[in-house]
Write a protein that binds this DNA or RNA. Structure first.
Lengths: 152, 152
DNA sequence: CAAAAAGAAGGCGTAAAACGCCAATATAAC
DNA sequence: GTTATATTGGCGTTTTACGCCTTCTTTTTG
């Protein structure tokens, strides 16, 4: 499946407002409601659209802190890495985790309430994950930009 | 305003599916439709809910790459930092940017298509931002976890 | 170049959802 | 125990989503 400029405009508008009504979306992209809805459904089925969500205000719900953590794993079997990754998925405070070069180095993005909360996550969660050798934390002071909108 | 366990359940469900119908949401939290809708509207007005969005599949739209970039700024006036931050906001490939300790160090999350695309962003965008002294890139090899859901 | 085929668009009717209003119930204050 | 306040549930109206059919446009093929 191939998308055109109008599809990209639909994707941009849905990124900005995931609850825009189909009628309004159709008007903005100069289509009838039925034609527009058909395109959206196709974009969903073709996998361009992952899912719809609601974004919380982190500060308002008491999770204003962001830390980026470098985690090194003791050189082990592929199975050990898979176990680590499986466990990381379960940690609700971990919002991102990427494998880095080095074959056993991860970059982990953690959200937390306050320094006490981070200390708990550090000592009771991160260091307890299977195979963890070293945990190096970078605390952020302020959020300058954060978006879920990708350029399309 | 103070939220209770039922509000938190509403927030969790909306994070999972931002387009869930009010009727289904109401059923899942054991409320009538009207009572449920009123709670959602209050959560929106009180700022707990930031906004609704649609998340794209990064690979499907041709942006599978993730890089984390440390950017150091030449020690300058507060104005220079503000200018840098203002310009970073405008870069669509930058999805996150945090100020780190050191007063002039930023951590920047960049999405890109391929290595050629990243080279362009590095040399034509990041290094050209006002006051940039050093740009140190960490390329990720694989996405292990990524979510927008915060624990509530 | 024309006829046939395929794809996309628009219009319409029906079902579902959102929303405003009011009464009933539950909770809190005095 | 009574008044005041907040929260809930029910109902009618308006808006939205969605399936179906026809029309129009684009592409293919002889």
């Amino acid at each position: 499946m191939q998308i055109d400029e109008r599809d990209r405009m639909i994707l941009r508008l849905l990124q900005r407002d995931g609850r825009i009504s189909n009628a309004e979306l159709a008007e903005k992209v100069n289509l009838s409601a039925s034609a527009c809805l058909r395109r959206v459904r196709l974009l969903e089925e073709a996998g361009f659209i992952d899912h719809y969500t609601m974004l919380l205000n982190p500060a308002r719900i008491g999770k204003p802190g962001n830390a980026f953590v470098n985690i090194s794993i003791t050189r082990q079997t592929r199975e050990a890495l898979e176990t680590f990754e499986k466990e990381v998925q379960k940690v609700p405070e971990v919002v991102e985790c990427y494998l880095l070069a080095g074959q056993s180095d991860y970059l982990v993005h953690v959200v937390y309430s306050d320094t006490g909360d981070y200390e708990r996550i550090h000592s009771e969660v991160l260091t307890q994950l299977p195979g963890v050798e070293r945990v190096q934390t970078v605390i952020t002071l302020r959020e300058v930009k954060r978006t879920t909108e990708l350029p399309v």
